[in-house]
Amino acid sequence: MPYRFLSHTADAAVVLEAPDEAGLRAAGVAALRELLLGDSPVAVALERPIRASGNDTAERLINYLREVLYLYDAERFVPAEAAAEGVRGEPFQADRHRAIREVKAVTYHGAEVRRGADGGLRATVVFDL
């Protein structure tokens, strides 16, 4: 599993680990999908473009995930996996997808990406619930 949730009293904090930025985005989408939909299956049917900018890796990651969350919340586009220039998934279908929780936002709190001794990247992201 490229992500694991940390104990956080009020919100949700997750550690993402991946060899590169694209891997961090993939892990971030997987974590966000679990928070929103639990283990509901999500098909890779459509791709929506996302342009996420930022001054550093952490800001780019947060800004990317903010867009994924916006697409889910405002346009009911359920994320399945990260794509090179967007996110793949499908429209929300009440008979297949169980919306288990509201995620208000992807925060910048403690946003930091570090490179480990093995050369891989490690990021912590806090979601406001």
Partner: peptide, 29 residues
């Protein structure tokens, strides 16, 4: 959702503003 989006929209601007006005941040949030 309206309020969440207002806050979310403001953060990129405020990150740039913090740099512009040289405000050191112990936490980006």
């Amino acid at each position: 959702g309206l309020g969440y989006q207002v806050c979310d929209d403001s953060l990129e601007t405020m990150l740039r503003a913090s740099a512009k006005y040289a405000i050191p941040l112990p936490d980006k949030q």
